[in-house]
């Protein structure tokens, strides 16, 4: 097995991820549904990028592509200088586990596991020792303000707390890229604000952050806003702070 921690050269000069004429289409009967069309995109390490666009414009599809959950129909996607198309399923799993942290709109915690156990999942697949992973999971839970709720089940937590667990879980393997698909979509404004503060903090720590959102307020926090329309990059805006 190749160790992608070494194979993918994330520290090299140039963008951490790059897409070249990337297309994704679905075959629906006789018609071809083109969800992403000729996407050309480069994101540098440590950038905070927001992806916006109307519903159905392909935001989630693009994010899944970046997160190696999906493969392009055509075009090239390079992650850390390595073309993803030559990698097999195990390699992609390895990259997802070690280099990428996912945060979903619907939290996606596992119901029968408690806070610590949920945070431990990515570490389990990376082969952490029992002691190491438990310790780190508790640390992360405390960091997102859930030090008092370590043994609670997701059903015993508020939406905001659940999303904080999800963020802690996304950070478990110390990933380079955090991908969040409408992380505040299911939250009220105050819990949403807390989540955004945590994301800001991650940005300051040097993580690459890519957030899909409908919220213009969130977009203003990002350095770059990519606007999708009908599967194409319609516009790119850079915010200066």
């Amino acid at each position: 097995m190749i160790d992608f921690r070494q194979e993918l050269d994330f520290d090299a000069e140039g963008p951490i991820l790059a897409m070249e004429d990337l297309c994704k289409s679905y075959q629906l009967g006789a018609t071809e549904l083109r969800v992403l069309r000729e996407i050309n995109l480069a994101i540098n390490s440590g950038e905070y990028v927001a992806i916006m666009g109307p519903s159905g414009s392909g935001k989630s599809t693009l994010l899944n592509m970046i997160g190696c959950l999906d493969r392009p129909t055509s075009g090239d996607y390079r992650l850390g200088g390595q073309s993803v198309s030559v990698l097999d399923d195990d390699d992609l799993s390895m990259i997802r586990g070690a280099r990428i942290g996912f945060v979903f709109q619907s939290f996606n915690l596992i119901a029968q596991l408690n806070v610590v156990e949920n945070i431990e999942i990515p570490m389990y697949y990376q082969g952490y020792s029992e002691h190491e992973s438990a310790e780190r999971a508790e640390e992360l839970a405390t960091m997102v303000g859930l030090g008092e709720r370590l043994r609670h089940r997701p059903s015993e937590l508020s939406g905001g707390q659940q999303q904080r667990v999800a963020i802690a879980r996304a950070l478990a393997n110390d990933p380079l890229i955090i991908l969040a698909d409408e992380p505040t979509g299911n939250l009220d404004s105050s819990s949403g604000a807390e989540i955004l503060m945590i994301l800001d903090r991650l940005r300051e720590e040097g993580k690459t952050l890519i957030v899909v959102t409908h919220d213009e307020h969130i977009a203003t926090r990002a350095e770059r806003v990519i606007r999708l329309f009908d599967g194409r990059i319609d516009k790119e805006e850079f915010n200066t702070r």
């Binding site: 399923d89 799993s93 586990g97 070690a98 996912f102 915690l109 697949y125």
Partner: peptide, 14 residues
């Protein structure tokens, strides 16, 4: 749950 685990790094084998 399977989807979540796969997104978090589980291989098919796992």
């Amino acid at each position: 749950e399977i989807g979540i685990r796969r997104a978090l790094g589980a291989k098919k084998k796992d």
